[in-house]
Design a protein around this nucleic acid. Sequence first.
DNA 1: ATGACTGCAAATACTTTGCACATGT
DNA 2: ACATGTGCAAAGTATTTGCAGTCAT
Lengths: 149, 149
Amino acid sequence: MATDQLLASGESLNKRLAEKGLRFTSQRKHIYEVLLSQRDHPSAEEVFTRAKQAKPEISMATVYNSLDALVKCNVIRQVNVDRGAAMYCSNMNEHAHFCCDDCGKVFDVNLKDSPRVPEVDLPVDFEVRSIDISFHGRCSGKCEDCGQN
Amino acid sequence: MATDQLLASGESLNKRLAEKGLRFTSQRKHIYEVLLSQRDHPSAEEVFTRAKQAKPEISMATVYNSLDALVKCNVIRQVNVDRGAAMYCSNMNEHAHFCCDDCGKVFDVNLKDSPRVPEVDLPVDFEVRSIDISFHGRCSGKCEDCGQN
DNA sequence: ATGACTGCAAATACTTTGCACATGT
DNA sequence: ACATGTGCAAAGTATTTGCAGTCAT
């Protein structure tokens, strides 16, 4: 990842954390960079593994804490597609997820324009903060693990 | 729950399981009835607790196995809103979920007509089997745990 | 008859917590 | 200065697995 991009996102991150009363620490910055540098959908464990490469002292508790902080200040999203580990996504553009039930991979998918996000009947006093849309199915053809072509 | 409803759903369940090559067992029937009889969003643990009331011998492994079987044959849905336990939903009408981040409760919410389910750009060879839509936010006012009115 | 399912107990996976020390504001 | 965050280790949840026996087909 380019340095200017790193710095830019670092500065922005600082502000975003501050807005929620959260502190800007080297661990949070590092974990954010780890997520930006490989834009897939790693579990906390996987983030831990990647983060340790540059920061071997980092602990799992800090990974969870940092992920929660990043989710809270809206720079990453938590993705829950199944039982088992939550995944984290640094793509903050409006998008949905497609989870292949055969190989377990999660793909970002773009919503077609028109009414992109579905409208729902909610009691007036419910406050919506975020919407998660996930598809389940098979990705076969795109994915070597799903075999058959 | 009325007996005829039980019997009807039992028969239908048998067929649904068979279609997927799964067997109709008293445990699966019982767990399905447990889910139908209280239409909230229990975790596997909670299903276990409820199932034991009438079938004290039932085991946790069977609960998980049965829930998976019921999900596979499309008579219930698995709901993943967070880290922590998955929840199970016996409402198979098209609907979304609203999860209150403050009290943790999950509500069924109806999609407004028009294009109810969002369209996405998927590779042609992806096969969609199901769509999960969940909202996060606060339910305050509807919920004693969320206080303040 | 046979493979799928069950119950049990043990193992694993995932996440949270308590505490002493360090660091951001 | 002081609250918030970190690292470590231990505890707590959630889920899966192996195996011997049982049941549905």
